[in-house]
Design a protein around this nucleic acid. Structure first.
Length: 593
DNA sequence: ATGTGGCGGGG
DNA sequence: GTGTACGCCACAT
């Protein structure tokens, strides 16, 4: 038996002998030349929760269905203790196959946690976090230099015990950014006819180049004989450098699909994965996501849309917003002319290609740390986290917390429940339309984390919401009149409370820190905690969420309106006239008494 | 007011 | 893959 420590980058499962085998992908921390590790766990079983009418009869019915591996458990369901059944199944795919049948058993009141993807379940139940270190115990089963088409060595490790989470430093990861150029003389590039002419690469490990079929006097240009060789060279670089992350700009929907289409046409297998698997695409609703096993592909376009509010999200616009510098741009419709003309124009095109890859790199450097930190808190794979909306982030964070607090996770709303919820309207924050004119000597006031504070101080949570009045002490929301128990502390208020405490703790340490590197990391950590706390309110008001609670959402905004109105009134007594107010802050001018 | 359709980014 | 989902705006009715 030996142990290995590595940064957890990616996770999935494969099926062996009809049993799931979880695979953890990672690389030894702080050693950029270390080989990738794939740790296998054959001992994690899929399960769902069954809430029975009668415990004994229900177990009998499950037994008749050939579900013999069951455990009795006590869990909380929105704070209420319940005796439930944890029913193990053989394979994750048995869950969608069998759940309807289980649900319809006469002794089954409800089934729960039947739609948590297996790898997510694994992360939650084992308390391990992507982008943080894990320690595994077992043995290395192969130190192969030839797994499928992989050029480099890889360690395959068989785990004998569950993995352990290690409190670890922020990992130093190898990040490769890329960007392709296409010769498209007619409208948008069409992969059937328009060839790739350049692939620009930039990284934080010294690799900066443009691979192309054209010659150049620039040192950063590597010339190869054909488009086929451009793609092969790209593959070769990824396989030999083993970056932890690959970033692109709109690469989910353009660069990777395009490379994929061209590779198919040229008969190249895009074996980019750490396990030798090919580039895959996952349909995620309206969009698609490009996926490389064992390497995290992040599309920065998606992150930027979440990170800053802009009218447009072109690479140029985003770059200017973040760095204040203009980036030279070539009109997409004319790009092919630069290529065809050659000479000076071609050199400009090379510069543009390199520039785009570098800009992508720089944007990545700027926003990846925050998102990695969010990943370390939410505890789902970075690939997923980088594609989740803020509400989903909060929901998956709460799902993890629910496991820690021994709470059963609420089910997702059914289609009909979802449409019912959509008809419910929540009154928002208080807005006072701004007074026209140029105002001088303005004072600004705003509440710090207004909604999170209300949730905590008024204990606003679905499990503390009073449905029928008893004599217990409670908080009553203004206007709407909903009531919340003072004790015990609700699930969501507890979780937000812990987030804000942790943030305060980090901010305290920051004040005493004189190490700029450490300071920067802690600043990102507290920022991530703040963002998560501030979006927590959303889970109550978004119709498709598990913790939807319109009474909670309505009460929070009602208290918010109450607080700001009272504050404005108080300011008036001291001679301040408010000229504009919105939700959690206002601007005023001093008029005197 | 309500419904439907298209689009974002990329070259 | 314990799949399958956005949110906004323009335009029409």
């Amino acid at each position: 038996m030996e142990t290995k420590k590595f940064v957890l980058l990616d996770i999935d499962y494969v099926t062996e002998n009809n049993k799931p085998v979880v695979r953890l992908f990672g690389r030894e921390c702080g050693n950029s030349s270390a080989e990738p590790i794939i740790a296998l766990d054959k001992n994690f079983k899929p399960y769902i929760y069954v809430i029975p009418n009668d415990m004994h009869l229900c177990i009998q019915q499950l037994d008749e269905m050939d579900i013999k591996n069951v455990e009795k458990l006590t869990k909380k369901d929105l704070g209420k203790k319940k005796e439930i059944i944890k029913a193990y199944l053989n394979h994750p795919q048995d869950v969608p196959k069998l759940r309807d049948k289980i649900r319809s058993l006469s002794e089954v009141k409800e089934i729960r946690e039947h739609d948590i993807p297996f790898y997510r379940r694994y992360l939650i139940d084992n308390g391990i976090f992507p982008m943080a270190e894990v320690e595994v115990t077992g043995k290395c089963v192969s130190e192969s230099s030839n797994v499928s088409s992989k050029a480099s060595a890889i360690c395959i490790f068989e785990m004998k015990e569950p993995p352990k989470h290690l409190e670890s430093e922020f990992p130093d990861l190898k990040v490769l950014s890329f960007d392709i150029e296409v010769r498209n003389p007619k409208g948008m590039p069409r992969p059937e006819v328009d060839e790739i002419i350049m692939i620009g690469l930039s990284s934080n490990f010294g690799l900066h180049k443009v691979i192309s079929t054209a010659d150049s006097s620039f040192d950063f240009v590597e010339t190869v004989p054909s488009e086929r060789e451009i793609i092969k060279r790209f593959l070769e670089i990824v396989n030999s450098e083993n970056p932890d992350l690959i970033v692109g700009y709109n690469s989910d929907n353009f660069d990777f699909p395009y490379i994929n289409d061209r590779a198919k046409k040229l008969g190249i297998s895009l074996a980019l994965g750490v396990d030798g698997s090919v580039l895959k695409f996952m349909r995620r609703g309206f969009a698609s996501a490009a996926f490389i096993r064992g390497i995290i592909h992040v599309d920065l376009y998606l992150l930027m849309r979440r990170y800053i509010r802009l009218d447009r999200y072109t690479l140029e616009r985003v770059y200017k917003e973040l760095f204040g510098e203009e980036k030279k741009d070539i009109d997409g419709d004319k790009l092919w002319k630069y290529w065809d003309e050659g000479g000076k124009k071609l050199e400009m095109l090379f510069e543009y290609s390199m520039d785009d890859a570098v800009a992508t790199s720089k944007i990545g450097e700027k926003i990846l740390p925050l998102n990695m930190e969010i990943t370390r808190i939410v505890g789902q794979p970075f690939f997923d986290v980088a594609r989740m909306a803020s509400g989903q982030l909060v929901e998956w964070f709460l799902i993890r917390k629910a496991f820690e607090y021994n709470e059963i996770i609420p089910n997702k709303p059914s289609q009909s429940e979802h449409s019912r919820r959509r008809t419910e309207r929540i009154v928002g924050g208080y807005v006072k339309e701004p007074e026209k004119g140029l105002h001088e000597n303005i004072v600004a006031f705003d509440f710090r984390s207004l909604y999170p504070s209300i949730i905590i101080s008024k204990n606003v949570s679905p499990d503390t919401l009073i449905k029928k009045r008893t004599g217990e002490e409670c908080y009553t929301a203004p206007e709407v009149g909903f009531q919340f128990l003072k004790e015990p502390k609700g699930f969501v208020p507890s979780v937000i409370g812990r987030l804000l405490e942790e943030r305060a703790r980090i901010k305290r340490i920051m004040k005493e820190s004189n190490d700029p590197g450490e300071y920067k990391i802690m600043n990102v950590q507290q920022e991530a905690l703040k963002r998560l706390a501030n979006t927590m309110y959303g889970v109550y008001g978004f119709s498709r969420f598990r913790w939807y609670c319109i009474e909670c959402a309505d009460s929070i905004t009602a208290w918010g309106r109450d607080y700001i109105k009272k504050t404005i009134k108080k300011a008036e007594k001291y001679g301040f006239h408010t000229i504009y107010a919105d939700t959690d802050g206002f601007y005023a001018v001093y008029k005197g008494l």
